[in-house]
Amino acid sequence: MTRTFEMPVRIRFAHCDPAGIVYFPQYLVMTNALVEDWFDDALGIEYAHMISVRRVGLPIVKLNCEFARPSRLGETVTLALSVDSVGQRSIRIEIVCQCNGEVRFRSRQVLVTTSLDDGRSIDIPGDIARAIEQFAPGTSRALQEESDT
């Protein structure tokens, strides 16, 4: 069974449009923060160090989003991240946003490790791959080649 990493998020004024509901691009800001916290808190890999010192980036190269119900100012939602699979250079994740058991937003993403010095994709560094594989047992590093580009 795949483990999930969960993070509660209070919906703030800055997340919302004039109607008081989450403006859809803000979900991507929230999911990026979730990935950073997942690295720091669950994987034991300091995200800031990975970016600024190791110069390893993790951009989204494929994104699918579904918006089921609006989230509103003042609510607390829970974001849950799970790993679908791990490839040589990419990670497939799913993020589900819920409030009181109701799905509000779902995102499937493919993240690719890149060199921040030249912008090219690189193999997932060993320590990061091991941390991710421990988090999501049963995943394989055999994603289809189309995900690695």
Rank of each mutant, 00 (worst) to 15 (best):
S52P: 01
L28Q: 11
G101L: 03
F39T: 09
F13K: 11
N100K: 10
E133W: 07
L143M: 07
T113K: 14
Q98T: 06
V112R: 00
N64M: 14
E133T: 09
V9Y: 01
R69W: 05
Q98R: 06
D117Q: 14
I60F: 09
N32V: 11
V61P: 01
V53F: 12
M30G: 00
T31K: 00
I11C: 10
A48C: 14
P70H: 04
V53R: 15
W38F: 06
I11D: 09
S147V: 12
R130M: 09
R12F: 07
A136R: 05
G87C: 00
G87R: 02
Y27T: 04
E66Q: 09
N32Q: 14
Q109V: 10
S90F: 07
P8C: 07
A142T: 15
Q26K: 06
E102M: 12
M7I: 04
L63H: 06
V86S: 02
R72P: 00
G119F: 04
L58Q: 09
T113M: 14
Y27P: 02
L63G: 05
T31D: 02
S82A: 13
Q144A: 15
D117T: 14
N100H: 07
S85M: 00
Q109E: 14
R3I: 01
S115F: 07
S71M: 06
D148E: 13
L58V: 10
L28H: 12
L58M: 12
T113R: 12
E94P: 10
V56G: 12
P70F: 04
E133Y: 04
T2D: 12
S90M: 09
D17L: 02
S121M: 05
V22R: 06
R108Y: 09
A48K: 15
I60M: 08
C97E: 11
S71Y: 05
Q144S: 15
